[in-house]
Simulated assay, not measured.
Amino acid sequence: MSQSRRTLNTLIRLGRALREDARSPDDQATQSPLRAAGQAASARVTPTLQDAAGRLRAGAQGLRDQVQARADDRLERLITERRTGGASDPEALAVLARRREAREARAAQAQARAELLAQAHTPEQRQVLGLVAAATVWAGGEPGEVRYTTLLDRLAPGGDPAREMAIHRALWTLAERQVLAVSPHGVVTAPYPRPPLALPPS
């Protein structure tokens, strides 16, 4: 059996074991109706809708940053032109500098998210990466944890075998390419991309 096949089988077994643990009878018995309703509602939010919502949020933030940048540039010019010979309000300029740094950081995160999603070669891989990116700070996401079982529940609701296999294969392929990492406890993360190695001068 090839190494790739063994890796895939390991991931499938891990996903099944974690899913069975997450759905133990005790958990099901103590699950509140409100929580069950929330999980059912989240299952109806398809990965395609989540991806579209993520793009809309990123676009809206980009527009806000552009408007703020133009306003800050005008304010900075007014401050520096109030007196001949330079800035007259160091505190205001420091505030503007911090705002500029925050915008640049958000722009870098948006670029990092786009580059992460660009690693997908199939729709399933893009769906997996979209959910992981949403919990990855360096890609503009909120701090959080994505588990193997979460991906299966969100992307293959109902336990459809063909759909589950497609998600397993997407995860396996991304893990093989080191785009994602899966811990022994089933936590899926996107490692911070390493910068390309500098080539020695010829």
Results as ranks from 00 to 15, higher is better:
V45G: 00
L117F: 03
I79Q: 03
A87Q: 13
R82S: 11
L151N: 06
G159W: 04
N9M: 11
R163G: 04
A29K: 12
R64A: 15
S42A: 15
G86S: 02
Y192T: 13
L129S: 04
G158L: 04
E164H: 00
W172I: 01
G86K: 05
R19K: 11
R64L: 14
L11T: 06
Q109G: 03
L197P: 05
Q66E: 09
G159R: 03
A17K: 07
P33V: 10
A58W: 01
G159V: 03
A36C: 09
A108G: 08
M1S: 13
W172S: 10
D51I: 09
Q109Y: 06
L197A: 14
A29R: 14
A41R: 11
E81L: 13
I79M: 09
S202W: 10
A190I: 12
Y148E: 05
R169A: 10
H168D: 10
L180N: 02
L152R: 14
T150M: 13
E145I: 15
D89L: 08
L34H: 00
G54R: 15
G86A: 12
R57A: 14
A71H: 06
A29I: 02
A107N: 07
G38V: 00
R154L: 13
R23C: 06
R100A: 12
P33E: 01
S183L: 02
A22E: 10
V187C: 00
A198F: 04
G59T: 10
A43T: 07
L116W: 05
R5K: 15
D21E: 15
L116S: 09
G85R: 11
R64D: 13
R113H: 03
S42F: 07
P47A: 05
G15Y: 02
R83M: 09
T122F: 01
A175V: 11
R98M: 08
R55H: 12
R35W: 12
P123V: 02
A69P: 00
A94S: 11
L180M: 00
T189M: 06
A87R: 10
A166R: 11
P184Y: 05
L14T: 11
Q119S: 06
A41H: 10
L151T: 06
T7M: 06
E81G: 12
L78G: 08
Q3K: 05
A102D: 14
E104D: 10
R82D: 00
G59N: 04
P25V: 09
A41G: 09
P184H: 01
I167R: 02
Q119C: 15
R19N: 12
P201Y: 02
V146Q: 07
D26Q: 13
L96F: 08
A112S: 10
L129R: 00
L63R: 15
E124M: 07
L151V: 12
G59I: 01
A36K: 14
L93R: 06
I79L: 15
A166V: 07
G186V: 03
G59L: 14
P143R: 05
R35N: 11
G186W: 01
A92C: 06
I167Q: 03
R70Q: 14
H168Y: 15
P193C: 08
